[in-house]
Design a protein around this nucleic acid. Sequence first.
DNA 1: CGCGTATTTGACCTTGAGTTCAAGAAAGGA
DNA 2: TCCTTTCTTGAACTCAAGGTCAAATACGCG
Lengths: 191, 191
Amino acid sequence: MGRPKNFEPDVVVAQAMETFWTNGYAATSPADLAEATGVAKGSLYHTFGSKRELFDRALDLYDRVGVALTDEILSQPGTAKDRIRAYLLFIVDSDLAGPVRRGCLAANTALELGGRDEAATRSVRRMAEGSIDQLAARIERGQRDGDVAADVDAQAQARFLMNTVLGLRVMAKAFDAEVLHEVVDTALHGI
Amino acid sequence: MGRPKNFEPDVVVAQAMETFWTNGYAATSPADLAEATGVAKGSLYHTFGSKRELFDRALDLYDRVGVALTDEILSQPGTAKDRIRAYLLFIVDSDLAGPVRRGCLAANTALELGGRDEAATRSVRRMAEGSIDQLAARIERGQRDGDVAADVDAQAQARFLMNTVLGLRVMAKAFDAEVLHEVVDTALHGI
DNA sequence: CGCGTATTTGACCTTGAGTTCAAGAAAGGA
DNA sequence: TCCTTTCTTGAACTCAAGGTCAAATACGCG
């Protein structure tokens, strides 16, 4: 009953995510979103309530995609060190591949809204903790497999690697591949 | 001749820097700046031309202060590793000390304007390269002093440390002292 | 003292952001 | 078929951002 939607909310969220990712939260206007999604402003508000709610859904999608991608890369065959290197290089290279250096939506959000916006800070923290857990799990598996020394503190290493990833996404805004790859190599010395 | 200024431009730039640092570039309005500095909007425009030019001067001040502070910390007595640790801890702790986690003005700018704004990207890159040079110089001094192994690549380590600093300033938005201190310790393993 | 110059200021202007809404359109059910 | 319901849409609204300006103000100088 009622007129059917003529767009897929999930698709719109994905398109909105791209727009927010490229421009940042504040610099993305409802008009931009309407143009990017092909859905009129009024419809967007009807479906999502507000710009902020749409953003929350976009951030959530970003998280889910990121977790899946991380999992896929880390679980391929190889030592922990190799897989984590592949993970870091993947981040660097996909960042460098696009026409615009967009960095990480979550990190961008942390810096743009973090501190003032309580909810945003919590989301970002939760996402970071998720990534840390994925990395720690892979390091622990490496210890069981015998390719990582037993005395390595997996949790500490994972946090450190998360920190490196965040650094890389900032560095990627201003430095080129050579420098970033060197940083990746240096960061991996501890594993 | 003519009416004298009744404010010190340098002081206003410093106050503007604080405001931009706390709120971000876009989220700081001319009205905010007028309130923070105690100077009317019209006067600000008369003296500085535009919000953007004021921001450029604020960023420049931030850079000069940062360079001086870094130099002071790195040149105090101790091994390279100890001094760099002190530097990292100083950044973390001063970030955590304030009521708001403001991170690094330069990094915030890089993420907020980087990519779209060519001039901002260049400024930030130049500032990062300056910090890298300071760190590299300190490591090389450590090698001459004999407290850093001769086979360490000072430039690569310095870039890596810069990356770590940027990561820390993002992490500081969402994590607490314990985690950040642990990251500092882990990052210093390579020196 | 009055004149020219440089500064100060709040009022004013334009533009666009974020949101709401009334009217119309497309479905199913009676 | 007409009605109800749900969705669509551009117009319209409010508010504030970023910037301009004319009038008022304060100094040095002849």
